[in-house]
Design a protein around this nucleic acid. Structure first.
Ligand code: MN
Ligand code: MN
Ligand code: MN
Ligand code: MN
Lengths: 219, 219
DNA sequence: AATAAAATTTAGATTAGTCTAAAAATTAGT
DNA sequence: ACTAATTTTTAGACTAATCTAAATTTTATT
């Protein structure tokens, strides 16, 4: 139905829109897809012909309902596969993304349904990102950055901003995992670094840079 | 490294060789791949340049050691995925092949290793076909057609010749599953149809056509 | 409002994989 | 050993996705 490339463009556009109602620019797509603007323009025409996006020259693009549904389905598959790899095949949360980029294009309704069932219908992926349901509905979780919290406040880790293997590997060496209860013991006035307690471990330090990449829920 | 199309050509050539040492013809490949001979010739040149096959104009092709290794790895992945779908995701043995045709091209050594482990290192796939090990070694099982057995002989079902969903669905409705013990009660002299007992079920009839598509081991 | 800068589109090529039609080589039939 | 039939290869064209370079449109700056 849609080529792998078309699917990736739709996903990229979806992620660039990110809830906002603004149109996505050609250059933004080119950067995200690691291609040139000229290539993007060609593809936009094709997606527009297929009624998956609304495209107006020089203005930018928006996904149609049809296009958004496809994008959400790809994201659903991506996150379910990541969950499967971590939960069932002993992968680390830092090594599943690229593989899921391949698996998300496997075309089988039944496969997705069975993986979902096998995992007992997870709501979020290994990085705390919500998994769209089979109708493309996405549970939006309100979360805040750990860096915005104050001394003595307590919260729970629900996700990460940076998804890079480097960051994820760093976190894996601490007590900071999804669901961890975090207490902020102290904040350094000079560099905004934090002394925190996570789970049952000894208190330890994290930089403000790290705190800005950890999502937590108010608790 | 190799495109999906190249992988499929290598697999097709491997299957056409089928143990024999003869060269595979252009037309045979074209038929198996559902393409035209002209397209095959183009691809043969490419695979030859990559040293994956030995190709001589008008003569035919053979896989090099390198090409055969790739083909066997694709087959390994195909059969492991089929096993996974049947054993873990409640798929029927008649509905896994096409999906495995997609999954066999997913590129991740670790994924294959982990699926293999998860399935506890199966030796055969859901159709009784042997699964090559990670070095490309393939356990060859000697088996015979049920149609070659005589009255009162007993054997065990180890595989099928025809892999079509229609045939597999038919078998699924009988007691004829991999591992079934089969006793031949009687053979009809006119049409070579058999009256057999499989497992603990009541005796029943199968045509010679069916018997010619069931692989059994001498027991 | 005019001009400079930036963003976007168009034009023209390229590569992988495919096709049809024609040419060349091989194999089969007498 | 010829000729006919079959198989295989070549030639030339097409589509999807990409690129570079040039043209066009929009936005920003004076
Ligand atoms: Mn991911
Ligand atoms: Mn994720
Ligand atoms: Mn199969
Ligand atoms: Mn099989």
């Amino acid at each position: 139905m849609n080529s792998l490339t078309e699917e990736n463009y739709l996903k990229a556009i979806y992620k660039l829109v990110d809830g906002e109602k603004v149109a996505v620019t050609t250059n933004a797509i080119a950067e995200k897809m690691n291609t040139k603007a000229a290539s993007v323009t060609d593809m936009l025409k094709k997606l527009s012909d297929k009624k998956l996006i609304n495209y107006e020259k020089y203005y930018g693009v928006k996904l149609t309902a049809k296009g958004e549904k496809i994008a959400l389905n790809i994201i659903r598959k991506h996150r379910l596969w990541e969950m499967f790899l971590v939960e069932k095949l002993e992968f680390g949360w830092d090594e599943v993304h690229d593989l899921a980029e391949q698996l998300e294009h496997i075309n089988s309704e039944k496969l997705v349904a069975q993986i979902d069932k096998f995992l007992n219908y997870p709501k979020v992926d290994p990085h705390g990102d919500p998994i769209p349901d089979s109708n493309g509905k996405l549970q939006i979780q309100k979360s805040a950055l750990l860096s915005t919290f104050k001394k003595n406040e307590v919260c729970m880790m629900t996700g990460v901003v940076d998804h890079s293997p480097t960051f994820l590997q760093y976190l894996a060496k601490t007590e900071l995992t999804l669901g961890s209860t975090i207490k902020i013991n102290d904040i350094n006035d000079f560099d905004r670094s934090l002394q925190i307690t996570a789970g049952k471990a000894k208190p330890f330090f994290i930089s403000n840079e790290v705190a800005k990449n950890i999502l937590v829920s108010l608790k």
